[in-house]
Design a protein around this nucleic acid. Structure first.
Lengths: 211, 211
DNA sequence: GTCTATACCTTGATAGAC
DNA sequence: GTCTATCAAGGTATAGAC
């Protein structure tokens, strides 16, 4: 069956996320699967094929969920809240794949065969853009918001936050534990504080996921 | 003289920043310096020694400037503005070194001989913490601010923003040019919007550097 | 499906001539 | 200060026995 193959994919996902794709060798993956390096090539043709298997479903899921939220029926602020929650939730669902998608973004942008990643990122950018544009037009967000800088900043914030929460935290000794709920709440406060229309700054934040 | 040595350091800085430390080979550095790979070892004992030379001054400068701002005589909000501006300015001063310091943070945290980097980051964290604590106590910032999450978030924001501005931008084709001033102004608006006390949300932001 | 064995390449680093 | 020449280690990938 494909079960052994999937086992190898999971081992590779962990190693790619922890050490990076370039720094993870076929031999180490094989070691952790308790087989020899040559045997990996019975399951996969190349190292790249393993990377595809690690990230492909994650890319599709995030793109589909993002566009679905942007096309839902609620107001722009609830959509934004749902998008922020989604960004942090998917990392909880499969933090290794999403961590790799962010940290290997340069590689994924240039490597032959990975064009679908850039394509999906383009789709997601346009979904965020539509949501923010709506919110500005409806007077929910600051009127003079630079959409590109805002989307770029929020995405970098959420990606690096999730990466810290699910990975870097191991190395941080000076801090106590944070729950995912607390981290989500912090990011909602921070981001909405930054982009809400000044007149709405003290309104309660819609905490429910709307998707 | 040490001039040839410095030339090699500059070439290495560019390559480490663009391709990563691990992906940059001694041979490529030598190629760009128009010498053979073996000749590099007349100037440096190891590849690590080149990395030290690339980052050491940048670490010292940022740590000293950060602690200096935190100990200056103005109010906490002006200090925070100065710290934000400093973070973005140092990348303009030597974006390669600061980009490496952020992107190779895992390596720098674990590698023998690089303990001074973690030491400086600890000093800087404590400086930021003192500034935010002051601001909360003085009623300038939100009273219930989680200091660790706030500092961590702002630092990730500024580091990834500067990295995007000075490097990733090359690959972004859909956007027009942004000036550094515009990016600084955006980040000041975003961060102060997120952490200011609600009653002060419409006050003008002190734009002058106070250091 | 895994092992043995290995081809072929690139890596960081070294020794000694010039 | 650079070159020639090279080493030992480790990288991806392959072929064929079991």
């Amino acid at each position: 069956m494909a079960s052994r193959r999937h086992e190898i994919v999971q081992i590779a996902a962990r190693l790619f996320a922890e050490c990076g794709f370039g720094a993870t060798t076929i031999r180490v993956i094989a070691d952790e699967a308790h087989i020899l390096s040559g045997s990996i090539y019975h399951h996969f043709d190349t190292k790249d094929e393993i990377l595809h298997e690690v990230i492909r479903d994650a890319v599709t899921f995030l793109r589909d969920s993002t566009t679905q939220i942007s096309k839902s029926e609620c107001d722009a602020e609830r959509k934004l809240v749902a998008l922020i929650r989604l960004s942090l939730d998917v990392h909880a669902r499969d933090h290794q794949a999403y961590s790799i998608l962010y940290n290997e973004r340069r590689l994924l942008r240039q490597r032959d065969g990975f064009e679908y990643v850039a394509q999906a990122k383009g789709d997601m950018y346009r979904a965020w853009q539509a949501v923010l544009q709506d919110g500005v037009a409806a007077g929910l967000f600051k009127p003079n918001l630079d959409l590109f800088l805002t989307i770029s900043t929020i995405n970098r914030m959420l990606n690096t936050c999730a990466d810290w929460f699910h990975h870097d935290r191991i190395y941080e000794h000076r801090i106590g534990p944070f729950s995912l709920d607390k981290v989500v709440a912090f990011n909602l406060d921070f981001i909405l504080g930054a982009i809400r229309h000044p007149k709405r700054i003290s309104q309660p934040i819609p905490r429910q996921d709307s998707a």
